[in-house]
Simulated scan of single mutants.
Amino acid sequence: MDRYIHAPDPATGLDFLWRRLAALAALLLGLGLALWPDFARAAPGEIDITLQARHWIDPSGSLDIDEVARRPVEDFAAMERYRSFRLDGGVLWLRLELPERDAARRWYLTLSAAAFTNRATLYTAGPSGAWTSQQAGDHLPVSQWAHPDQTPVFVLDSQAAGPVWLRLENQPAPVSPRLIVLDERQLQETRQWTFLMVGGYLGFGLLVLFIGWVHARLYADRAFIAYCCYVACMLGFQAAFTGVGGLFFWPDHAAWNDAAPPVFMLWLTASGIWFVREVCMVSRHHRGVDRLVLAWSVFGLLFPVLYLLLLNRPAFILLNLYGLLSVLLSFSLCIWTWRRGETYAGWMALGFLPVHLAYPFPALRSAGLLPDSWATQYAVLIGSAIEIPLLLYILHRRA
């Protein structure tokens, strides 16, 4: 009798891997949903002083601290709600009356959820009246910040006399201050949990990226290559958007730290459209639509060059419109090709849904319609943690 040696079916091994991957995704998602909601508000012992601040915009952006401090208090409006400020070349000054603090502990002022503020400077007056300044922001290398961190952090001098002054500038996006006072232990705990969750997300994303590349080699399918580009851009965007990239990956490069969020956002969107084009086989259904989709993707790939050269309000509006319209385009392409017989296009529409539902939070923040918050900083990250493995599983079944 002839004996046959059957080679193992690659799909069987991949199915086993998928079960382990799904379990890991569920674990990470559960941890994130259990822990991150606590970051949406000040934790016990932390003090949110945003609504206690008084604000004034210097339209010229040229006044120094002495000139601003001499202005009457009546010139500074009360911060009655969490809001965004469109500066248009000006500078936002915040007058802060700090609450009573335990002198035995070291205290910090943090700009929570503001990893992409161009420049933030805190001025405090000593007993002699001399001003001391601390600087942070993505126009300054993170390694040169007064206190290098994920977002601007400032030490509060216990000997400071009178109010402290915070100078904020950001262009072309609005600035949305959210000010938290916390002690050294609370700051360290917040950092540890944030780095654990973001680090777990990035590690999980790299694992999924590796598996996607294995699929690309195994099936020789361009859709997997487009998927790998999409995931790589998503990981880069989240590293830049959360401030982890500036702190760990490019701490000495201020120009890239400033450019990375919009660049990765555009590349992410462009690669996502290319990914949809490949999976939904748009060229099979209409050549004109296929060329339009390809041109849309190429525009997103090249637009960062023009955006960084202009860096003005119209370019910023165009960036946000490109992101919004790309969400609508990708969903429309999935539904259109699904109705024309592409079975997995319908599943792709569902696979993109977690990020599509989370996208309005950072988009509305960029437009100045929402203030900085936990949701604007982490909603897309959580959505992509669900979306990335789900899309890969759909691709695996399709292959």
Rank of each mutant, 00 (worst) to 15 (best):
T110I: 07
A220S: 08
L370P: 09
S133V: 05
L21T: 12
A69S: 14
R20V: 09
G32C: 09
G13Q: 07
G368F: 01
G126N: 00
I394G: 12
F76Q: 11
L333A: 09
M281W: 10
F316E: 06
W131Y: 01
L266G: 00
P37S: 05
F76G: 06
P72E: 11
V263K: 08
D48N: 14
H396R: 15
T132S: 05
D258M: 10
L209Y: 04
D183N: 13
A345C: 09
A349H: 07
M348R: 12
L168W: 04
G246L: 14
R3A: 13
L21P: 07
V293P: 04
R167K: 13
A11K: 14
W93H: 04
T132N: 10
P371V: 00
L309D: 14
A223R: 13
R119M: 03
A40I: 00
V293Q: 05
Q192N: 06
E80V: 06
F210P: 06
I382L: 15
H396S: 15
F299P: 10
A240S: 07
Y227D: 11
R105I: 03
T337G: 10
I47P: 12
A34H: 02
V214A: 03
L350M: 14
I386D: 13
T12K: 14
A103R: 01
V153R: 14
P314D: 05
F249D: 08
F248Q: 15
G351L: 07
G162H: 07
S373E: 08
R83L: 01
M265C: 09
D372K: 02
Y359R: 10
L310N: 06
V208R: 05
G351E: 01
G32E: 11
L309R: 13
L325T: 13
E169V: 00
V91D: 07
R340L: 04
E278P: 04
F16L: 15
F241T: 04
R106W: 01
S330G: 10
L35A: 09
Y378C: 02
V181S: 02
F39A: 14
F316R: 06
G13W: 08
I49F: 07
F39G: 06
P163A: 13
M265L: 12
Y230M: 09
A40C: 04
W56R: 01
L35F: 10
G126E: 04
G212L: 02
A22W: 07
T194H: 11
V214Q: 03
R83V: 00
D58W: 01
A363F: 15
V142W: 04
D48I: 12
E74G: 10
G199A: 13
L98Q: 03
C334P: 05
E80L: 07
G203K: 10
L324Y: 09
L206D: 02
V73A: 15
P141R: 03
